[in-house]
Amino acid sequence: MRIWAIANQKGGVGKTTTTVALGGLLAKEGKRVLLMDLDPHGSLTSYFKYDPDTIEHSAFDLFLHQGKVPEDLPATLIVKTSMPGLKLLPASTALATLERRMVGVDGMGLIISRALAILWDEFDYVLIDNTPSLGVLMINSLAASQHLMVPVQTEFLALKGLERMMHTLDMVIKSQKSKLTYTIIPTMFDRRTQASVQSLRAVKQTWGNQVWKYAIPIDTKFRDASRLGVVPSELDASTHGVRAYKKLLENIRESETVNAG
């Protein structure tokens, strides 16, 4: 099982789109893919037409057992999506209450790791969509993951959010003595605007080789796919956006092969 986290401490940068697009491409290859929503806002859950306000069972259930995860629980929380081979472990808005509920409970940073260990033989890939804030949910996600993707919108306000995310990542890696690798992914790129071009240049100058050498362009088909609740590659595999995500998928796999070697 490969576990990838998609996170940034700024909202609206393309985390959910990245999760859905990559998950859809992997499922189309015949991989068994689980998308996990750890954001109380539930954008990923809503994408597939489930309501995070009313859903009966969700990732929240994993945190209700004093730091342990019952063997039979994770599989019961998983629901179908519009695509065969692509499953969802949804979020509920109750996740927003975890910080105060979990005060003083040991082992709360490893709940997702324990849940995925139970599901290890059931999936080839797990992609985790994260809340845009540092807390027990993001700590869980980073602790469970082997690779982190950090989408960053190519506009200057988003660069400040990226600085915060990189600072957080540095703290987590040091505290956990983690070998977590990461890739910064420029998103919503519009080559027609000077602001977008300059922002992309600034990201690459600041973070160098950690930045994917291409960028995910603005693509209206992403919005159409979201409205229909289907992955972008199922709606139209030929768009600029989907082709960019295919390149990104190739890059992540190549970098994992290099790091493994």
Results as ranks from 00 to 15, higher is better:
Glu250Asp: 08
Ser46Pro: 03
Thr76Ile: 01
Ile118Leu: 14
Lys221Pro: 02
Arg223Trp: 01
Glu254Val: 01
Thr18Met: 01
Lys68Gln: 15
Pro151Phe: 07
Tyr182Val: 02
Val258Asn: 08
Arg201Val: 03
Thr181Glu: 13
Tyr214Arg: 13
Ala27Met: 11
Met138Gly: 00
Glu234Lys: 13
Pro151Thr: 11
Asp236Gln: 06
Ile6Glu: 03
Val231Ala: 14
Asn209Arg: 15
Asn140Gln: 13
Tyr50Lys: 11
Lys15Glu: 11
Leu86His: 00
Gln153Cys: 08
Phe63Thr: 12
Ile3Ser: 00
Ala96Asp: 08
Leu162Gln: 14
Thr239His: 05
Ala91Lys: 00
Asp53Glu: 15
Leu44Met: 14
His41Ser: 13
Asp37Ile: 08
Pro232Ser: 09
Gly161Trp: 10
Ser196Leu: 11
Met149Thr: 09
Thr206Met: 08
Glu99Ile: 08
Ala202Leu: 11
Leu157Asn: 12
Ala21Ser: 15
Asp236Phe: 02
Ser46His: 05
Arg100Trp: 06
Pro84Asn: 14
Leu88Arg: 00
Glu254Tyr: 04
Leu228Ala: 15
Asp37Cys: 10
Thr19Asn: 03
Met83Lys: 07
Thr54Met: 11
Leu249His: 06
Ala115Cys: 11
Pro52Phe: 11
Phe63Leu: 12
Arg164Cys: 07
Val203Ile: 15
Thr154Ala: 14
Ala158Pro: 09
Glu250Trp: 00
Val13Trp: 10
Val258Cys: 02
Trp207Asn: 05
Phe60Thr: 08
Met36Phe: 04
Gln9Gly: 01
Ala96Ile: 05
Thr181Arg: 13
Gln9Asp: 04
Val33Ser: 05
Trp212Tyr: 09
Ile3Val: 15
Ser145Asn: 00
Glu99Met: 06
Gly23Lys: 04
Ile173Thr: 15
Leu38Tyr: 10
Ser199Tyr: 07
Pro217Glu: 14
Thr183Asp: 05
Phe48Thr: 09
Asp106Pro: 13
Ile111Trp: 05
Glu122Gln: 09
Leu64Trp: 04
Met165Leu: 15
Asp190Thr: 07
Leu169Thr: 10
Phe48Val: 09
Lys10Val: 08
Arg164Asp: 15
Met138Arg: 11
Val69Gln: 05
Gly229Tyr: 03
Leu44Asp: 07
Ala143Gln: 02
Gln210Glu: 12
Thr93Cys: 05
Asn209Val: 10
His147Gln: 11
Val69Phe: 04
Gly14Phe: 03
Gly24Ala: 07
Gly85Ile: 02
Val126Gln: 06
Leu228Phe: 05
Asn8Gln: 06
Glu56Thr: 13
Leu127Thr: 01
Tyr245Ser: 01
Lys80Gly: 09
Gly229Asn: 01
Leu137Pro: 07
Asp61Ala: 13
Pro186Ser: 08
Lys160His: 13
Asn130Val: 00
Lys28Leu: 03
Ile128Gln: 07
Tyr125Thr: 06
Ser196Ala: 15
Met1Asn: 01
Asp170Ala: 12
Lys68Tyr: 08
Arg253Lys: 14
Gly23Thr: 04
Ala260Gly: 15
Val136Pro: 11
Lys179Tyr: 05
Met83Thr: 10
Leu249Lys: 15
Leu134Ile: 06
Tyr47Thr: 00
Met138Lys: 06
Met108Asn: 11
Arg223Asp: 01
Phe156Val: 14
Thr239Arg: 02
Asp129His: 01
Leu235Ile: 11
Ala59Lys: 10
Gly241His: 01
Arg100Val: 14
Val152Trp: 02
Gln9Met: 10
Asp53Ala: 14
Ala115His: 12
Leu200Gly: 04
Phe48Met: 09
Gly229Ala: 02
Ala59Phe: 10
His240Thr: 07
Ala91Tyr: 03
